[in-house]
Amino acid sequence: MSETAIKLRKREKTSLFDQVKELLPDGGNLNLCLTCGLCSSGCPATGLVSMDPRKMLRMIALGLDEEVLASDWPWMCTMCQRCIYACPMKIDIPQLIYNIRAQRPREERPKGILGSCDMALKNDTNSAMGTNEEDFIFVVEDVLEQYQEEQPEFAEMQAPIDKEGAEFFLNQNSREPVTEPDEMVPLWKILHLAGVDWTYGSKGWAGENYCMFLADDDAWKHVVQTQTDQTHKLKCKTYLNTE
């Protein structure tokens, strides 16, 4: 429960509730809430900073935009969609949360997420750890060469970058090439043993996308567009996510 009583005002025509309804297909069903509480009872974020999904939806419906925008709870909801899964009216609370996040001025959003997104925009690799094309190619080639020599059964193993016409365009979380490159190897071995025709892209190889979590549409789009362009350029049939 909140510590202070909430004072209701008349909901403005330009309220967050109405704005979000217009953005979402079928208005995100935001009007359909039965207040049953299934969303909240099954949400691990219920109770954090005295908030839960039902309460947030009710506050928005009542036009309490200021209070909602001041809360950090939208950054503690992981938009995991378990609430929609449980909801009898299929109300899109995660999309509501996304749009509440987007209402906060960009530079005031959590620094860690902001920094990871900005880093991804620096290079066409989209790496949230700032790895550029040259460094990625160096690490992959260096590690590959070492394993080809040390483990002769894998002398023929490949870790192609920009191989045109490969069936799969494979992405890779930046954590491996940057902090634990040996962790890339088990996956390469598996792909080698299965005879898979795959490639990384020098551009768009990074699998993570913090711009989506930042609720920055333009940046999220930019990242996906970069991945798409590189997959097209290499004429790959399948974009294969490793996570």
């Binding site: 898979v196 996308n209 996906v224 097209h232 974009y239 996510n241």
Partner: peptide, 28 residues
């Protein structure tokens, strides 16, 4: 990340001629 790619392609109407898959399907 699977969802960011799939949802992004849809949300931003990005034209593409490839499938988006996840490796767990392929391991199996």
């Amino acid at each position: 990340m699977t969802f960011a790619v799939r949802a992004g392609l849809k949300k931003f109407n990005i034209e593409h001629n490839f499938e988006v898959k996840n490796i767990y399907e392929y391991y199996a």
